[in-house]
């Protein structure tokens, strides 16, 4: 069978619909992941023994298991265990939230702890409570150092959505797979899928690089 690139255009609307689902899962998942990760990271960095322990256990469990297993657990095991039935889309978003959250927690912890102790002491010494020192002094500095590793995680999470093919979410990879199954145009379709992923990750990189440029790393 000869390669015929024009078939891509026939299936482009379908592929873009898949890409839209990928973007949706990624965005929703990362917003949640950022919130969860920040909370867990702060618990690790500044929490007492109990909070630190809880966050540590969460991070170790998630980092120590594959994301495919995590989403399978959410989708297939949770209904059995807790009689909690969720649709594939919710399972996918939740998997990204929980998975990215664990990695982001470590990024947040690292960034906050990398800010010199002297600045915290200077803030405390003028009579600020510790939380205000974190919000006004350490936080803004840590945020700048957060961006490069966060960019990495965003891209990883975006690509991880392709694994949700296993629970039948109609994201980009699944869409490609389905088209391929009907017309056997492997070269054309998988090239198109790869290029669409590249465009999405490229856009993400570009946004992060712009933010980074506009902010001096101190």
């Amino acid at each position: 069978m000869e390669t015929d690139w024009s078939v891509i255009f026939d299936f482009l609307p379908e592929l873009l619909k898949g890409a839209k689902t990928t973007v949706y899962i990624t965005l929703a998942g990362l917003v949640g992941g950022l919130i969860l990760g920040t909370v867990a990271g702060m618990m690790r960095a500044y929490g007492g023994r109990v909070l630190n322990g809880v966050a540590f256990a969460y991070i170790e469990v998630i980092r120590g298991t594959p994301i495919v297993v995590q989403v399978m657990f959410l989708y297939f095991a949770l209904p059995v265990l807790a009689d909690l039935r969720i649709d594939p889309m919710t399972a996918a978003v939740l998997a990204i939230v929980v998975n990215a959250g664990a990695y982001i927690a470590e990024i947040v912890r690292g960034a906050f702890l990398s800010i010199g102790k002297g600045l915290t002491e200077a803030g405390l010494a003028i009579g600020l409570p510790h939380w205000k020192v974190l919000v006004y002094i350490v936080g803004p500095l840590a945020f700048r150092r957060l961006i490069p590793p966060l960019g990495n995680q965003f891209i990883v999470s975006l690509k991880d959505t392709s694994l949700f093919i296993v629970i039948g979410v109609g994201e980009l990879t699944r869409t490609g797979q389905e088209i391929m199954a009907s017309n056997f145009r492997a070269v054309e379709i998988w090239t198109a899928v790869a290029v669409i992923y590249l465009i999405m990750t490229g856009t993400l990189s570009l946004i992060l690089r712009t933010i980074e440029k506009r902010m001096r790393i101190l």
Partner: peptide, 12 residues
């Protein structure tokens, strides 16, 4: 008030 050896000014 305290003044430190390493100044510790807020760099931002």
């Amino acid at each position: 008030g305290m003044v430190f050896q390493q100044f510790n000014l807020f760099p931002q």
